[in-house]
Design a protein around this nucleic acid. Structure first.
Lengths: 214, 214
DNA sequence: AACTGTGAAGGGCTTCACAGCG
DNA sequence: CGCTGTGAAGCCCTTCACAGTT
């Protein structure tokens, strides 16, 4: 184990590995080789061995990786063994859809509150989760021990929302607004940019069109 | 202009550039240098010049890039000048939220239909968009000229959905199911993996926790 | 003088290939 | 013999540095 500086490519793959291991465990499998594991993704087996070797010697030469202990190790490495509290900023369609998104629960993330500026929304509930006034954000962060913020507001409001998040002391942010945010050090902002994904598909299709036409 | 093989890193940045240019144009700016453009993202100016130089000599030495013509060029390059028709598979919360997501319209994508297997949903409408029986998918693809599919079904159904999409002849897919899909050549599958993004945040927080504890 | 376009250098992620262990 | 763990090679993306253009 020599975890210097782990790349995001690596940790993202660990997340994928874990989901696959969960399935294998449920199917009663007890061990797997890097080679047959790699076949389940579009990966080279050395990639998998290297990824895992960053965190420990989990494998057994001649046999492969024991599934149960590898699962437990990945859960610890990814921090999925502790509960996280999430505050979602923006109670639009996206914010509401995320509120009872099962993937959050599976990652041990609990949505503690939704926030919005619209007086017509404040006080309403999405399932168990209440919509609070955005003005009470900092207070709610302390009250509910919120450690992850989700930015689900229009692009024009995203930078201000991030500013508020930073001031509240939160260190981890998931951003859905399709704008480059100035974050700064010591805080992690993961952006999910639907617009870029769509335009990337558009580029691919346009390229194919052009190839056909000449 | 020597567009051999353009990397996805490049096209994704082009998408971000374009959005910024739209803002600049709306603000009445007429030209911008790669250096001051780079400051708006976390990028090196050479990166921007190289990205653009893949597609043409859009700049003017001594002056920078004219905003209007660069915008028009990026729109053409990304294929945003032609309308695309989208079919969304899965009329759950996510599918419905996407149906009237403004980002789709902005990229010149029109949602033609939603598809679901639940008889209780079939026939209902989300705004202007009707929910069709998934069994009629291939017919609807032809009828509406659908060229982009969005997979918004549970993980367990995602691979089957993709199979159906392939058989219908669609070449571009946006997948929200957090599973590695076997796609094959000649078809482009962009996955948006919320689970990985969340677990990546979890990893970051766990690492910080550990650093504090020793 | 200002700024683009680009060959060359640099840096990082992936793949190869094999030593070493069970 | 099978499979892991890993140094070295390969490959690709980014950054540097500067010649060339207006």
């Amino acid at each position: 184990m020599k975890s210097d500086k782990i790349s995001e490519f690596t940790t993202n793959r660990l997340s994928v590995y874990l989901r696959c291991l969960n399935k294998l465990a449920a199917a009663g499998e007890t061990s797997i080789s890097s080679e047959s594991f790699a076949l389940r993704f579009d990966l080279n087996s050395a990639q998998i061995r290297k990824d895992l070797a960053n965190f420990g010697d989990f494998g057994v030469r001649g046999l492969g990786y024991p599934i149960d202990t590898l699962r437990e190790n990945l859960i610890k490495i990814l921090g999925l063994d502790r509960e996280r509290h999430v505050g979602i900023i923006g109670a639009g369609r996206l914010g509401m859809a995320l509120t009872d998104y099962y993937g959050l629960r599976r990652a041990n993330f609990t949505v503690s509150a939704l926030f919005d500026a619209d007086p017509g929304k404040i006080g309403k509930k999405i399932g168990q989760v209440v919509i609070l006034d955005i003005k009470d954000f900092s207070a709610a962060v302390k009250k509910y021990n919120i450690d992850v913020a989700v930015i689900a507001v229009p692009s024009s409001a995203a930078q201000i929302a991030l500013q508020m998040v930073k001031q509240s002391g939160i260190k981890a942010v998931l951003n859905f607004a399709p704008v480059p945010l100035k974050s700064g050090p010591d805080i992690k902002v993961n952006s999910i940019d639907l617009t870029t994904s769509l335009e990337n598909l558009s580029y691919f299709l346009a390229k194919s069109d052009d190839a056909k036409e000449g």
